[in-house]
Design a protein around this nucleic acid. Structure first.
Lengths: 255, 255
DNA sequence: ATGGTTTTCGCCTTATAGGCGATAACTACG
DNA sequence: CGTAGTTATCGCCTATAAGGCGAAAACCAT
């Protein structure tokens, strides 16, 4: 192949496309793995395919990228329009799948996102969509089940070293409610005692003075907590190998 | 936008493209942020653009996606062909940029990767490419400097909670050499004592019996260490909130 | 009031990171 | 050969964060 030379496609878009096969164009879709904790376990929102390929199987909601949009906004639009889903607390790009044969009809590149929905919203979804427990997925289409696994993995990781849970619970919540979410996500028992202590110490959550009026099954009324911030923030276990005199302020700044 | 109905582009590729603007096609390029520690500081490999737009500015190596390729292999090919770079120890997808106007010539979607090169390789690179310290980048093209920052952030994070450093050092190395790499990457002093202890305790590195024959400037010969594994493996600070009796075996399995 | 239930606090143990000085193992040079 | 200089490594301690467990708090129902 010729001499080493240029870099990106210097061909103007729509240009003649010289050399080694540049200026090819591809369909591009944005997919969302929408997660919500329902009845104590993690669920994913899936769409039942009406047509071939994979007719009858379930797939991630999403849609193709429009000309004037970025992937993220495109996806929000598709979710709003097609599944009536607007209450998304968190949306983050996950990964882009480019396998040549991931769609039997032809080449479609897909960028997958992770979307989180709080437990206190119950969106009205179309008939051909449904929530499925992430642990027991129905037969899925394309590479979507692999994408879901990948999303779950990221979710689990971030839940332990960030404040990401803010997107999965209402603005005000009890430790018990938070515990359910953590258990659903991590897939194992979580001690409420330890959960409270750790998140308070990390200054991720804080107590509002208020308490639940009275719980259904009796028992001491729980304090209502809230997340100090409702945007993603990492706690610094990344501070291993931290330099000598370096201390991290509560606000995250470094002195 | 009609009634809520289908999902992915059900149009066969090349089809007529109905409804809400589906089956659009876009140019797609793969870019690499190639990192290497040189002279004790982190460097990035950049390419000098010959033509407009951004003529004379520096950009990430890469190239457009060919029809029969996945993004990762496409990128490897471009790096091998165009910058003669084949000794890449690690290649991981970073993120996909889809801003409409990121390329003034028209719409090009870019998927960026992080690539790592060990300190013991010194690839012969073309005239119009050069290594730049990541802390002092030259004027860059497109959104590339933002991509580099993003890559550096991931690199720093992963260096502290994974064995990722294996891709930045030779197969056998001394703690001193490893320290240089960590300092270059994290941007602050790292104690060799602590580095050794932590990585040994985490069972990320292990001592080969061998020692450096004799160093240049005198001093006790250092033990040669090696990474137990040369594929990405996370250490489990993700194990916070770990369930009661759950212990993690040295090999990473969970009992 | 009494018992059941749930939440929360206090005290302790364990695990991991980090500081610092002492010792080991070489080179260089008289 | 002996001694100074240099670098690597180890041992012992401290600091911090996570986790276990039981006791107390604060409600409900009878």
């Amino acid at each position: 192949m010729g001499r080493v030379s240029r870099q990106e496609p210097d061909n103007p878009p729509g240009g003649t496309g010289g050399g080694d096969g540049s200026s090819r164009r591809y369909e591009h879709e944005a997919l969302a793995a929408v997660f919500q904790v329902r009845d104590g376990s993690m669920h994913v929102l899936l769409w039942r395919r009406a047509r071939e390929p994979f007719a009858g199987r379930w797939s991630l909601p999403g849609g193709s990228l429009a000309v004037e949009e970025r992937l993220g906004t495109s996806l929000s639009r598709h979710l709003a329009v097609k599944v009536d889903l607007t209450d998304i607390g968190f949306l983050e790009q996950l990964e882009t799948r480019s396998d040549v044969d991931r769609d039997p009809r032809g080449r479609v590149i897909a960028t997958a996102y992770v979307a989180l929905v709080s437990t206190d919203v119950n969106p009205t979804i179309p008939d051909d969509t449904a929530w499925f427990p992430a642990a027991h997925l129905p037969p899925t289409a394309f590479d979507h089940s692999s994408i879901i696994r990948s999303g779950l993995e990221r979710l689990r990781a971030k839940l332990t070293y960030t404040n990401l849970a803010f997107a999965l619970v209402p603005a005000y919540f009890t430790i018990a409610e938070l515990r359910v979410v953590y258990e659903a996500c991590l897939g194992h028992a979580v001690s409420p005692t330890n959960l409270q202590r750790v998140l308070l110490r990390r200054r991720i959550i804080e107590s509002t003075g208020r308490r639940t009026s009275s719980s259904s099954s009796g028992g001491r009324p729980a304090t209502l907590y809230r997340f100090r911030e409702r945007t993603l923030r990492v706690t610094d276990p990344f501070a291993t190998f931290r330099p000598p005199g370096m201390d991290v302020e509560p606000n995250g700044a470094v002195t």
